[in-house]
């Protein structure tokens, strides 16, 4: 297994390279677009490491593996462990009960406690769920830090077009949708970045809403990432007016000062997903596919990479491992 090539340098490929390098290997890392950037869906992520919140709509594997993610990422980048909050608007309070019933790892907090955690979110009578062990990071900084850690271990990204057929030896195919696996589909997501100093948040906040759920991740320096739509479409192209309206309306409903914020960036991309929304390591001969990270790229890439490395080193097949 000395001759390993990784194709695709998004969050999956970078983590695969890092996991192998920790086991003394120096894999080749190839990406047709070079270093991470707007071409990859990792660029557009929220960066929440929130396994318990994700548990509301995710399989148990995501909750279990996701709990490792914060400590894994902390090896290479700044991870803020400040918990996360889930709130509703006044008329949707039943949504909070439902979310609480479907998740673990939270405490239900009163408006007074909310006022001490996030003063800007406190409104009369508003309760919240506080997931105190959850974390977040800044995706683009995390990718750069991960790349720097690889560079320090002698691994850089070669910019080249390549498919597994073009290279010899063991291949880790981390190309996402470009791998064109038969059961993989794209799920469109759209995001907005706002800048305002009128709102202060120190942790990710999810607004439950029957029609337009929203999360807001503070990036620091008055920058907030608003996400994310989830549409059963593989249509490329920029954010739609409707998605923009929905995300901004929800943010405005959460705090009116967001209406005065500057829209500094919008983005849209496709998440590669399998039918159960759980990522997989799929072995096809000498090729291992690491794919289907869906909306859990940052949450699940470390675990996925670890299982691929375990297989290459020991032949161990973890719960995310599939034979084609």
């Amino acid at each position: 297994m000395s001759d390993v090539t990784i194709i695709g340098a998004g969050v999956a490929g970078l983590w695969a390279a890092y996991a192998l390098s920790k086991r003394g290997l120096t894999p080749r890392l190839i990406d047709r677009n070079g270093n991470p950037g707007a071409h990859g869906c990792s660029w557009w992520a929220g960066g929440m490491l929130a396994p318990f919140c994700e548990g509301a709509t995710s399989e148990a594997a995501v909750i279990a593996h996701g709990q490792q993610a914060a400590s894994d990422w902390a090896e290479v980048t700044k991870v803020t462990q400040n918990g996360s909050l889930v709130v509703t608007l006044a008329r949707d309070r039943a949504e909070l009960d439902r979310f609480a019933r479907r998740t673990t790892g939270h405490a239900r907090i009163s408006g007074d406690t909310l006022a001490t955690l996030e003063p800007d979110l406190a409104t009369p009578g508003r309760e919240a769920l506080y997931f105190d062990t959850e974390s977040h990071l800044t995706p683009r900084a995390a990718l750069a830090d991960l790349l720097a850690a690889l560079t320090a271990r002698g691994i850089t990204i070669e910019q080249a077009e390549a498919t597994p057929d073009d290279v010899h030896g063991t291949v880790l195919d981390c190309r996402g949708l470009a791998a064109k696996l038969p059961s993989l589909r794209g799920v469109r997501g759209e995001m907005v970045m706002l800048k305002t100093h009128e709102v202060r948040l120190s942790r990710p906040v999810r607004l439950l809403h029957p029609r337009h759920p929203l999360y807001i991740v503070p990036r620091g320096d008055g920058v907030f990432m608003l996400g994310a739509t989830q549409i059963e479409s593989a249509a490329p192209g920029p954010i739609t007016a409707r998605a923009l309206l929905e995300l901004l309306s929800a943010a405005y409903a959460l705090h009116p000062a967001f209406a005065e914020a500057e829209v500094i960036e919008t983005g849209a991309d496709l998440r590669p997903a399998f039918v159960d929304h759980v990522p997989r390591v799929i072995r096809q001969g000498r090729v291992l596919h690491l794919n289907g990270l869906f909306r859990h790229g940052y949450l699940m890439a470390p675990a996925l990479a670890r299982q691929a490395a375990d297989y290459l080193e020991h032949g161990t097949k973890g719960d995310l491992f599939h034979e084609d």
Binding site: R185, I231, E232, S233, A234, A235
Partner: peptide, 10 residues
């Protein structure tokens, strides 16, 4: 409606 043009997989 919303998946116009790109929902083939679904």
């Amino acid at each position: 409606r919303r998946e116009t043009g790109g929902g083939q997989a679904f």
